[in-house]
Amino acid sequence: MNKKRSLKINKNLIYVMPYTIWMFGFIIIPLLFIIYYSFTNKAGAFTLNNIFAFFSPVHFKSFLLSVKLALISTIICILLSYPIALILKNYKLKSNSFFIYIFILPMWMNSLLRIFAWLTLLEKKGIINLVLSFFRLPNINIINTEYAVILGLVYNFLPFMILPIYNSIIKIDDNTINAAYDLGANFFDTFKRVIFPLSIPGMVSGIAMVFIPALTTIIISYFLGGGEMLLIGNVIEQEFIQTNNWNLGSGISLVLIIFIFITIFISSKYYDLEDEAVL
């Protein structure tokens, strides 16, 4: 009996092996390197300067700007997702999944290409302005501004908000919604008291999938912000690639990782992330 049992455990260990190796090689060890670089200077001596550098006015300003843009983008994504998710739920066709695919189709293309496409659309002499000029309408001039970055973030991450919200909304029984109408509620009350509360798990999951990548984006701010807009991701990228200061880059990264962990921890208080894994 005992022998058999230990044999079984060994077998399971063999299955777990590849994942363990993967985790150590590509997650744990790099993380340890980041921690090592964070607390050392170029000579390899211990220092806390790299950590404190995060809170220097220049870097902290970048961080606050990142948080601001990520927050605004996340809120816009939520506001756009609910009408779409509700329309999809009411769209009682067998081809329902077709519409879902339309929304997630862009996700299958390289995001760099898609952001580059926005660049050609939004440029001062880009396609949108050409069309506007043709109709003698005033040109838009948002390239290299925060607006363009928000537009890019929303465009890029919207599907990650729509899907979890849609998933939690289609799980609501039609009769539960009908019961609200039956008891005299109009659409607004039904949404506020029944549909929205029951979709919060999906929304929290969507926030995790939109806010965090938006916070750490590099290419969207690089292309649509005109290279002058330094978000925290761009700061880290610069330290590693341009000034070649791995220690400073790691220090800033580490603080950012801790911030993200806190964000996830707070949101997981509202619900269990594992419960609603969507993608």
Binding site: D173, N175, T176, N178, A179, D182, L183, G184, R193
Partner: peptide
């Protein structure tokens, strides 16, 4: 007339209580 304006109430199959 939409259901929320009707002077009647329904007990649904499988109850349809609000789980929240």
């Amino acid at each position: 007339m939409p259901p929320n304006k009707r002077q009647l109430n329904t007990v649904f199959q499988k109850y349809a209580l609000f789980p929240n």
